[in-house]
Design a binder for these strands. Structure first.
Lengths: 252, 252
DNA sequence: CTAACATTTTTCCAACTGGTCAAAAATCTG
DNA sequence: CAGATTTTTGACCAGTTGGAAAAATGTTAG
C-alpha cells in the first residue's frame, strides 16, 4: 500500500512530460519565446478557469475531477487537457490570480486617511468581496485549511510584507492616539475573519438567520454590526439620565 | 492530547446495506437488538475515529483514503472496514460527535451571569478550543465550505434553536442597557469567526506573525486583543489632558 | 479441549480518475 | 481553394481507491 503524501512545495515543473503549445523545442540559445497565445486560447482558458473555480471552490481540489470541470466548461476532458496539461496547472493559475485579488483591498488602506474611515472602508470592501466573490473566498479558505501547500511561500513573503506595512500604519495611528492601542496584527486578522466568515460559513449563517433575516439583507446587517463592533465594541454609551455603565469594571 | 469524545447522536444504520456484526438475520418480529458492542470494538472504533479525524481534517473527506486512515490507525484497510463498513460511516460519526462538542461552549453562556463576564468567558472557551482542538475546527470548517451536506438539518434545528435562545439572552441584556444594542446573531457570528480563525487559518496566522510572535504566545495576544475589541472596539479612551477623541464623528 | 464467535489477513475486483495518443474536424493563411 | 496549423474527439490505459469474499487466526465460555 502506498499512501500518497502531499508534496508541499512544487519544485520545478518536472521535465518528464512533453511540453505543451509552443516552446516545445526550446533548448537552443534563445531564452524561450514568450508564446503568443491566440485569442481563442485565452477565451477557452478563461472559460476553464471559471468552471474550475466553480468546481474547486465547492468540492476542493481532490474532490474535483477534470471531468466535472470539463462538463461545467462545456467541453470534453481531453479538450480541456489540451489547454491545461494537468489538473494542478489549473489550480495553480487560479491560486496565483486569487492571491492578487485578495491582497488588493488591504493595499488600499491609506496611511494618510482618517483611521476610522480607512478601517471602515476596508471592512466594507472585504464584506463586499465575501458577498460578491464567495467562491474565491472558499477556494482560499480551502487552501488555508489544507495548510496552503501551494502558496505558503507567497504568504510568508508578499502577504507578510504587506501586512507588516499596514500594521505599521495602524501602529502610527495608535501612537497618535487616533485609535486605541492594541495588537495591529490581530486587528487585521479579526477583520479578515469576521468578513470572510459570511462567504465561507454561508450555509451556517443562512441556517441560523432563517428565511427572515437570512436574505440578502444580511450583508447590510453585518456591515452595521461590524461597524459598531470595531468602533465601540459592546460597551453601551452612557445614556442621558443614567450613571456611567456598570459594566466597565467587570472586565478590567 | 486525547480529545475526549462526548456522546453523539447516532442515527440509525441505514438498512440498505448488508448488516454488519449481529442483528444480521433480524427480520423477525423482534424490533432489532440494540447490539452490545464489545470492549475491543469500542476501543478500535475510537482509534479509528481519532485517526480519521487526523486525516479528514488535513485532507478533507474526498482527499482522504481509507488506506491513509488505516495506516494512521495502525491496522489494515479491510480490518478497518470491519469496524466501519463504509468510509462515509466514519465521517458521519465524526460529524455528529463534533456538533455536540461544538455547541457546548455556547450552551454554557448563562443568562443570569454578568454580560461581559459571560461573553468574555465564551470567547475564551472558543479560543481555547481553537488552540486545543484545531483538527476538529478544521473538520467543521471543511464541512461548512462544502455546504454542510451531512449536517444542514442539524444546523437548521439544533444549532438554530440554541443560537435563537442565546440571542434572546443577549437581547435581554441589551434591553437592560448592560451591553450596547446591536444584532445578537451577528455578534455570535463574529465570536465564532474571530476565534476559529486561529485554528482554520493557522498557516496564514503563523506566516504573518513570523517566528517572533508566531509562537504559542499568539493565543494570549489574541485573547487580549479580542477582549479589547469586544469590550470597547477601537475608539481610544480619552486620556487625561486631551479633548474627546476626534474619531467619533467620523463614522456616525 | 473445543465449539462458537470475534478479529485479522490475503487476495481480488470493478469503478473512477488523471492523462495519452492518433486521427478527425475546424480554422486560419496565403 | 490548398496547405498548414489549431482545435476537438474517441478510444484507450495505468494507477488508485472503495469495498467484497473468504480463508486464517485469535478468543472465550462451557
Amino acid at each position: 500500500m502506498a499512501p500518497r503524501k502531499l508534496k508541499s512545495v512544487e519544485p520545478q515543473p518536472s521535465p518528464k512530460r512533453r511540453q505543451h503549445k509552443a516552446d516545445a523545442k526550446a533548448a537552443t540559445a534563445a531564452p524561450a519565446k514568450p508564446r503568443p497565445l491566440t485569442r481563442i486560447q485565452r477565451e477557452k482558458q478563461d472559460i476553464i478557469l471559471e468552471a474550475a473555480l466553480e468546481v474547486f471552490s465547492a468540492e476542493g481540489f481532490r474532490g474535483s475531477t477534470i471531468d466535472q470541470i470539463a462538463e461545467v466548461a462545456g467541453m470534453s476532458k481531453p479538450n480541456l487537457l489540451y489547454y491545461f496539461p494537468r489538473k494542478e496547472e489549473i489550480h495553480r493559475r487560479l491560486m496565483s490570480e486569487l492571491l492578487v485579488t485578495w491582497l488588493a483591498p488591504l493595499e488600499e488602506m491609506r496611511a494618510d486617511g482618517d483611521p476610522f474611515v480607512e478601517i471602515r472602508s476596508y471592512i466594507r470592501r472585504k464584506l463586499e468581496m465575501a458577498r460578491d466573490f464567495p467562491r474565491q473566498s472558499r477556494l482560499f479558505a480551502n487552501e488555508m485549511l489544507r495548510g496552503a501547500p501551494h502558496i505558503v511561500d507567497m504568504l510568508e513573503v508578499d502577504l507578510k510584507n504587506l501586512v507588516d506595512e499596514k500594521a505599521q500604519v495602524l501602529l502610527t495611528w495608535m501612537d497618535q492616539g487616533k485609535i486605541t492601542r492594541t495588537d495591529p496584527y490581530h486587528l487585521i486578522f479579526s477583520i479578515w475573519a469576521t468578513t470572510q466568515h459570511y462567504a465561507d460559513f454561508d450555509v451556517q449563517v443562512r441556517a441560523i438567520l432563517g428565511r427572515g433575516r437570512g436574505g440578502e439583507g444580511r450583508y447590510e446587517d453585518a456591515a452595521r454590526y461590524l461597524e459598531q463592533l470595531f468602533l465601540h465594541g459592546l460597551t453601551p454609551k452612557p445614556r442621558p439620565g443614567s450613571k456611567a455603565p456598570p459594566a466597565g469594571g467587570a472586565l478590567d
